[in-house]
Amino acid sequence: MAFAHAGTATASKPGRAGMRIPYLLLLPGLLWLLLFFVLPLINLAETSTKTPIAGGETGAYEQTFRLQNYVDAFSENSAQFSRSFIYALLATVLALAISYPLAYAIAFKSGKYKNILLVLVIAPFFTSFLLRTIAWKQILGEEGPVISILRTFHLIGADTSITATALAVITGMTYNFLPFMTLPIYASLERIDPRLMEASGDLYANGLTTFRRVTFPLSMPGVVAGTLLTFIPAAGDYVNAQILGNPTTKMIGNVIDSRFFRIVDYPTAAALSFTLMAAILILITVYIRRAGTDELI
C-alpha cells in the first residue's frame, strides 16, 4: 500500500529512454517473482492433480489431471480449514485490540520515548520465530508466571493448564504477529496531520468523536495493512499449533506440513495449499472492498 506511488516519480521524465526506466527498475523484482513465485506455483498446480503410480513406491506420482484431489483434500480437512480461519481471525482481532492503543500511544503520547518504544516493538524479531514460540510455551507452562498468577487469584482451578490448548495457540499467534499489526497502524497514525484533530476539536467534536470521525478513518490504511499482515500468515501458520497446541488444535498448515514431509502425499498437500491460497484471496478481496481503503490516499 505504501509503495503504490513509487512508480510515478520516474514516469515524468520525457523521452524514449525515460519511458524505459520504470520497466528497467521493475525488472529485478519481476525476475525474482518469476523464479521464486510463479515457477514454483506452476509446479505446485501441476503436482496438485497427480495421482500415485499404481504399484509404484511411496512418493511416486503421475499426472492424471485429477481435479477430484481438491474435493477430497477439502472434505477430509474441512475442520482444520475452518479452525485455521477462526484461530487466525481471533488472533487478528486480539492483535488489533492490543496494537491499536499501543500504536496510538507511541504515535501521539510517547514524546521523547517514541524511538525506544518502536525498538521495543521490533525487539522480538531479533530472536527467531521458533525460539519465541517455545519461550511462549514456557511463559504459559506449569512453572510460568501466567498460570501462577491466574491460580493465585483463583481464576482457574489447580488442575487447569493453558499449554496444549486452543487458547495457547491463539495467544501465541497474537504475540508472534503483534509487530506486523502495530507498525503499519503506527505508520498511518504518525502520518496524520495533528492539525486535522485540532480542526475537528475546533468544529465542536470532543475527543471521542474526533477519534471516531477523523483519527480512526484516517488510520484505516494501517489497520487494513496490519490485519492483512497478521491474518494471512496466521491462517497458514503451523508452528504455533505444533508447539503450543494439541492434536485437536491442528490447523491447515499442520496438515500440509505432515502431508508434504511425513506422508509424502504431495498432490493432497499441493491441493490444500491452493485451496488455502484461494480462500485467503477471496476473503481478502471481500475485506478490502468492505473496508473501502482504496478511497483513502
Partner: peptide, 20 residues
C-alpha cells in the same frame, strides 16, 4: 472552556480540510 465548546471557528494556516 474546551475548544469544542467555544463559539469560535478557525481557518487554519494549511486549511486542515479532512482528506477522507
Amino acid at each position: 472552556t474546551k475548544s469544542y465548546r467555544r463559539p469560535v471557528n478557525t481557518v487554519f494556516q494549511n486549511y486542515a480540510l479532512f482528506p477522507h
